[in-house]
Amino acid sequence: MRRKPGISGLKSAAAARDQFRAVGENVARVKADLMKEQLATFRSQLEDFARKHKNDIKKNPTFRSQFHEMCAKVGVDPLASNKGFWAELLGIGDFYYELGVQIVDICMLTRSDNGGLISLHNLRLLVCQKHKTGRESVTEDDCLRAISKLKILGSGFEVISVGKKKFVRSVPTELNKDHNEILELAQIQSYVTVEQVERKLSWSSGRATDALKTLLEEGLSMIDNGHVDGISRHWFPCVSTSSAVVEE
């Protein structure tokens, strides 16, 4: 639109701008209202759904993880707060809160055995042992969720992946790439020798010895000089299943 010359031209241009703005605001408001309405509907339906399936969410681990997936897709975090309507509705906050406490407990109890590194698999087994009722009630997925909530406390709990396995680390030890590779190798036999590390990872002798020494000092491995062949073996309690059981 070409501006007409003179004062009237300026005025009409200003009036047109105002009109456009008014219309624009109107459209935006209508859109926002519509969105609000949709959100409210959605929220109430999600609430209905959660209310209806409260027991399924609590008892059935598969259903629970699917519910979480659904919530994540629409950007709702039912664990974000313990005070929200989710917590009141489902008590789901309490579920993960308690699970988190149990996980901290188990990590502390087993720390002297495994040096503060426990496989997610073993952790879940121990959690299920504590839950005397319903052995199948807690999944690895639940444990991961509970651990992710522990991070808020700055407690230094972290999930790390070594090869195909996930581990939960409860000590501030930084594991570098070399250590991770050794842990991955150890998953095959539960132990490694210096020679195996050198051969399989194509490392120099010094690199292998150094990394193994650090792992030993951190309490993540134990040395075994008792084999008849006279070769020292480094065992990793965190990758073996037998030593995972805490004696009551």
């Binding site: 134990m222 040395i223 075994d224 008792g226 073996r233 059981v245 004696e247």
Partner: peptide
């Protein structure tokens, strides 16, 4: 017998202090 009785490194006196104490 407890589980650790079948875990070979428990038969070697551990060089690291904390691990040895536990052992």
């Amino acid at each position: 017998l407890p589980d650790f009785f079948n875990y070979p490194p428990y038969f070697t006196l551990q060089p690291v202090r904390e691990t040895k104490e536990k052992q």
